[in-house]
Write a protein that binds this DNA or RNA. Structure first.
Length: 139
DNA sequence: CACGGAAGTA
DNA sequence: TACTTCCGTG
């Protein structure tokens, strides 16, 4: 297991310098059968330049991203989950459930634009992390 | 489009 | 639990 202090950053080549810490892209930690989470999938697409025409980080605001092609993102998500009837209406409902979970929030006024709550993602990936003093706690 | 209640799935 | 499906409301 890697140290918690590791904050390696991924910089997209030729990008606007927008990068996100490696802990944010922590695909799946469990060995095997756990189903992929929507936010893992979103981060996965965001991390690959080949999907930049479909979904991309919004320059300026850290953690903010824009779904440039909602139908395509929904199609890709549906393919991954074996849900051929998936569409943006349903996918966006799933994203809205993240509001209360504090994983995402909407960027009001900006169409198809959402923002990751990275501090919450730290908590999701490393439950032992205590946000109050920024040190790992023993249970 | 975006929101969120309500019921259904695995 | 984490969505998926459906839908009325603004």
């Amino acid at each position: 297991m890697r140290g918690l202090g590791c904050r390696r950053v991924r910089s997209p080549a030729g990008g606007a310098g927008l990068a996100f810490p490696d802990w944010a892209y922590k695909a799946e930690s469990s060995p095997g059968s756990r189903q992929i989470q929507l936010w893992h999938f979103i981060l996965e697409l965001l991390q690959k330049e080949e999907f930049r025409h479909v979904i991309a980080w919004q320059q300026g605001e850290y953690g903010e991203f824009v779904i440039k092609d909602p139908d395509e993102v929904a199609r890709l998500w549906g393919r991954r989950k074996s849900k051929p009837q998936m569409n943006y209406d349903k996918l966006s409902r799933a994203l809205r459930y993240y509001y209360n979970k504090r994983i995402l929030h909407k960027t009001k006024g900006k169409r198809f634009t959402y923002k990751f709550n990275f501090s919450k993602l730290i908590f999701v990936n490393y439950p032992m992390w205590d946000m109050r003093d920024g040190r790992a706690q023993k249970s």
